[in-house]
């Protein structure tokens, strides 16, 4: 992480993910129906996964890749359970 090009690129990618998180949180608060909120929540989890992968490159420790596996499984369970709950709530 000494050379300037790669530093700039990783800072730019962190800021892109941060902007994505802000836009998604806006949709999560604003969302007209509850299904839009589920879609936004699904995207929030993916953005957090991207943050953790970028952080593992930044500190160069490969143990953080394990967190991505767990998050990818848990987010699927959460999305499915919330959507089935809303379907049967009426």
């Amino acid at each position: 992480m000494e050379s300037t090009f790669e530093n700039t690129m990783i800072i730019l990618s962190f800021s892109a993910l941060l902007m994505a998180l802000l836009i998604t949180l806006y949709r999560l608060m604003r969302g007209p129906s509850s299904s839009d909120r589920i879609i936004a929540l699904d995207l929030v989890v993916s953005v957090v996964m991207g943050f953790i992968l970028l952080y593992s490159v930044l500190v160069s420790k490969e143990i953080y890749v394990d967190i991505a596996i767990v998050i990818s499984l848990i987010s699927f369970m959460g999305t499915i359970s919330i959507s089935i709950y809303l379907r049967h709530k009426k």
């Binding site: 690129m9 990783i10 730019l12 990618s13 962190f14 892109a16 993910l17 902007m19 994505a20 998180l21 836009i23 998604t24 806006y26 949709r27 879609i39 936004a40 995207l43 993916s46 953005v47 991207g50 970028l54 490159v57």
Partner: peptide, 17 residues
């Protein structure tokens, strides 16, 4: 590659908006 991936996630959120 990292930058392109972040840009695609940003594009997804702009599409959501």
């Amino acid at each position: 590659l990292l930058f392109l991936g972040s840009v695609f996630i940003l594009i997804a959120s702009i599409g959501l908006l």
